[in-house]
Design a protein around this nucleic acid. Sequence first.
DNA 1: CTTAATACCTAAGAAAATTATGCATTAAGA
DNA 2: TCTTAATGCATAATTTTCTTAGGTATTAAG
Lengths: 128, 128
Amino acid sequence: MHKIQMYICLMYSSELIKGTLKTLVLNLLAKHDRMYGYEITQHVKERTEEKIQLTEGALYPLLHRLEADGLLTTEKVSIGKRVRKYYKLTKTGKQAATTLSDEFRQFSKTMNKLLDTFQSKPQLQWLN
Amino acid sequence: MHKIQMYICLMYSSELIKGTLKTLVLNLLAKHDRMYGYEITQHVKERTEEKIQLTEGALYPLLHRLEADGLLTTEKVSIGKRVRKYYKLTKTGKQAATTLSDEFRQFSKTMNKLLDTFQSKPQLQWLN
DNA sequence: CTTAATACCTAAGAAAATTATGCATTAAGA
DNA sequence: TCTTAATGCATAATTTTCTTAGGTATTAAG
């Protein structure tokens, strides 16, 4: 007897994440005080029902960039023999988080308005 | 006597456009049947009160890619000695427009939800 | 004992935008 | 009339950033 599972891919085209990754990460840190990389990927995955999945190849370089830019500071914590690297917002980082968050909200409003004027057809319903 | 003008930059950080340009262009064409490149830039600029400004360096290569991918067809029209290049959606292009539009709507909902859980502080008001 | 999950990282390549051009026509203004 | 701004196309070099595909190591679970 085999158990058969079917998956429907609900993930967004990764294109959309592109302009938004920094906004996402900074605001996650604004809420959680400190987080480590892997934690960030899991958190986003859970909170979006797997729809947004951050790849480590994109995340870690971003975190390093943000640290280099002075938006984050790091702190290493040993868990047994493993070392976690926690990231925390600086003051500048907090400001950036707010700015980017507001910017995204406004942008998505503008975009949705544009898209609405484009097509007046009834909205398709999404699986979820 | 000099005329002094002050500008307040209301434009979005161009980061956000990145994942969205294709969605925007295809849906603009879905609404307008046919448009030429320059017209697209002006239309978006006007409809968004200058907040979204498409650069030609991004737009034209995109249009060429979309044509190469079979989402658009072109048609050249002479206006005096100038030649306009009109773009029009193919059937595939129309489908893509709808898909991407729905995807964006859903994505922005998800993102906004995430951002809302991040910070419960009162929203900053935006100029305009 | 082996696999999955946790946890970090980087390098090569691809994709797409920015910046900076270039050319030409036409309208508007000094 | 002369010059500038607007219209209209386009590309090339560079940069940025993501994807893909690895690598290492620890710990939990089966």
